[in-house]
């Protein structure tokens, strides 16, 4: 049960921070130039950042940005991606061919260029970060879903359902999707981490959060610049990100086992 409650606790803290962060009496944007890169102390547990803002306060408000970005991107990308993947693999023929070509073009295409184009066309902002990351992210889910469906579409219960006259949609989402969830959940749990990080990479291209707003990714990125002089700056957001990733993965494992058990009992 630890495998369920510890990650749920961590994710709970994350979401609470994300939800009530703006209402807390904190000053994440307050700049005190005399405190630039000051190390942790009794008054500021996590110290100050590169322009003299409290890292602790910024960690709390940054949780919101990262939470929003991570979940909206994973949500959009996994839904769009796995739907397309299932449809392609199930129908086969030219639909599948078209899908593979599109996937390949997306995979061969540098996301950076897309990000710059989006930033240039629509200006920097969180919505555009989500859009850019989802544009690149759906491909992985589509490929995964497609290959899984190819492998299981001839499975006994699918053939049986087809013989019984179930509609394509019903087969896809009642019989195929549940079997796909295990690998998709793994992909998803890794996805959250890479998206939080990718958001930081995008702000370098001028697409991410704009000052003075905070995000964990941009805090880590800014912090790495001062690793020689003030290593504490990167540690707090780095550990926070790791905890979240850890929680999501353990939870993912737990869910996979749980789904496994469910599908086994149903089949027998």
């Amino acid at each position: 049960m630890i495998r369920l409650w510890v990650p749920l606790f961590i994710l709970g803290v994350w979401s609470v921070m994300a939800i009530i962060g703006p209402a807390l009496p904190i000053t994440p944007n307050h700049i005190d130039l005399t405190q630039i890169l000051t190390t942790p102390s009794a008054t500021a547990w996590l110290g100050y950042d590169d322009i003299g803002r409290s890292i602790g306060d910024r960690l709390i408000v940054g949780a919101r940005t990262s939470f929003l970005v991570a979940f909206s991107v994973v949500f959009i990308a996994s839904i769009v991606g796995s739907c397309l993947g299932i449809i392609g693999a199930y129908w086969g023929g030219w639909v599948d061919h078209l899908l593979i070509r599109i996937i390949d073009i997306f995979l061969a295409f540098p996301g950076i260029l897309l990000a710059i184009a989006l930033a240039g066309a629509m200006g920097p902002g969180i919505e555009n970060v989500v859009l850019a990351l989802a544009c690149v992210g759906w491909v992985g889910y589509a490929r995964l879903a497609r290959s899984q469906v190819l492998a299981i579409k001839e499975a006994d219960h699918v053939t049986a359902a087809r013989a019984l006259g179930a509609s394509s949609g019903r087969i896809m989402f009642r019989h195929l999707l549940p079997l796909l969830s295990a690998p998709l959940i793994i992909e998803l749990s890794f996805g959250v981490a890479s998206i939080v990080i990718a958001e930081a990479g995008l702000s370098f291209l001028g697409l991410g959060v704009q000052p003075p707003d905070a995000s964990w990714g941009s805090m880590i990125r800014d912090g790495t610049r001062y690793m020689l002089v003030a290593p504490h700056v990167v540690i707090a957001p780095g550990v926070a990100l790791m905890l979240v990733v850890f929680a999501i993965n353990v939870l993912g494992d737990w869910m996979r086992d749980w789904l496994d058990v469910k599908s086994l009992t149903r089949e027998r």
Partner: peptide, 22 residues
């Protein structure tokens, strides 16, 4: 092993690189 895997995915390149250099 799995703890390593989790740490591995959550460390961004731009942090790991300087860390390894140091």
């Amino acid at each position: 092993a799995m703890a390593f895997a989790l740490t591995g995915v959550s460390i961004p390149n731009f942090w790991l690189g300087p860390l390894l250099i140091m």
